[in-house]
């Protein structure tokens, strides 16, 4: 079930006041980031609300495994990601989602060599001129695992070691998955730009 092995379990439990202080001042300040992460995973506002609520409830229930002053954001993102995989992914309305393990096997077997040659040309000026919806569509067209790692890195600014903990994967995998995700995204953007007649 749930383990938070990357955070040391504090030896003594928090008092009621401490718990409420941690919850309000260290956890809830990340509610908006968590909600947006949830929305980017589910594409559904109701599911995102439930996912945020579940994350907060789990965080509160396991608050003694959180060490005060450590990286609450990464800790919470990890809970949300686990909830998404365990509870939401199975019943999700989105049919485009693929099993984590399958994806891992897929991109481990696919070398990144030759990717560049296959990618249509895309100019930075073109990307600059793209609308938010166009960027979002390109991101959403990607498999959820690739999308997730780009969101964690580029949007949320997590470092590789933090991403490694959030996603439960080695740093080497963070690095290779990100590299692959970026190449796929670039390709999606290029195809999109070409279809829209961007030059």
């Amino acid at each position: 079930m749930f383990t938070f092995d990357f955070m040391d379990k504090s030896s003594s439990g928090y008092t009621k006041i401490e718990k409420s202080d941690i919850f309000n001042n260290e956890f809830m300040v990340h509610a908006e980031a968590l909600y947006n992460f949830a929305y980017k995973l589910t594409h559904d506002e109701d599911e995102s609300k439930d996912l945020l609520q579940d994350t907060c409830l789990k965080a509160f229930r396991f608050i003694n495994s959180f060490e005060r002053g450590t990286n609450a954001k990464a800790w919470l993102f990890r809970i949300l990601k686990n909830s998404f995989i365990n509870d939401y992914r199975k019943k999700s309305k989105n049919p485009g989602m693929v099993d984590y393990q399958e994806v891992e096997t897929f991109y481990n077997s696919e070398g990144s060599e030759g990717q560049t040659q296959l990618t249509p040309d895309l100019r930075s000026e073109t990307v600059k001129g793209m609308l938010g919806d166009e960027i979002t569509n390109a991101l959403n067209s990607m498999d959820v695992d690739f999308r997730t790692i780009i969101i964690l890195c580029d949007l949320e600014g997590f470092k590789y070691d933090e991403i490694s903990k959030i996603l439960d994967i080695p740093i080497g995998t963070v690095r290779s998955r990100l590299h692959r995700a970026r190449s796929i995204l670039k390709k999606q953007l290029a195809i999109y730009a070409a279809s829209m007649g961007y030059k």
């Binding site: 909600y35 506002e45 609300k49 409830l57 990307v127 600059k128 609308l131 949007l155």
Partner: peptide, 26 residues
């Protein structure tokens, strides 16, 4: 191009607000 794509993701993504009702529910 890599820099521009990062900028675009960071600056052009939709940011949803958490409603007070949801916070109250939690």
């Amino acid at each position: 191009l890599e820099k521009e794509i990062r900028e675009a993701i960071k600056n052009k993504s939709i940011n949803l607000k958490v409603s007070d009702a949801l916070i109250a529910r939690i």
